[in-house]
Amino acid sequence: MEFANAPRFAPEYEQAHEQIKKGAIGKAGVIRLRRGAPASSRNGEKCIFQALGMREFDWLRWTFGEVERVMAREVKYTNESGQIVHYALVMLRMAGGAIAHVELSWAEGTEHASFELTGDQGMITHDSRESTPIRWSRGEQFLSPTFPEMDQMQRQREHFVRCVQKQEVPCLPSRDLLAALDIASAARESVRTGQPVTLMQGGDEG
């Protein structure tokens, strides 16, 4: 089983993962992730932590290990035209000690994602809105070309094919998917109780 549309297949997230593993920022401190998309009438029934947050939660776990504690707050508003503005702030304490901030927003003009990864030896930042190599303006219209070999879905499909052909082992096994789902439900639980939710005992007491 594989999970579609994970940012570990997006080149910028894959590169950031590799840099962290290589020690580029040293000991991780505060990790900030943001993902946003426009408000929509179709998000009404959806859980924002699952629909929008899974990719960030999976990437965090993949890169920094297990999550110890989750605190989340959420706001939701349906305007006159039936569009649902939905926004959540999640704070995660990783078992390894790093502190992560995940902003999930259905309140944006366009889709975007960004990260800021800080540690005691450096910082890596990325913002999808500032990574457009070609901007084509025609009056109000902006065109942004895509690059097939950098396309996240395409990379994931190719990986899947290689797994079926047994040339590669799946890099996102179902247990990782379940772990990311656990984080999403911990966030939901935290919103419900108004208190942090502990997933496991970790390393920040040491």
């Binding site: 991780a28 401190g29 605190m71 702030l89 704070m91 800080t118 540690g119 942090p196």
Partner: peptide, 25 residues
Amino acid sequence: KSVYAELDTRFYEIEVEDCGLVSVE
């Protein structure tokens, strides 16, 4: 109304916290 915080000293060898996140309602 209410405050939640995760604080830590992760960047420098110092006696006070050098980082954290705060969640407020």
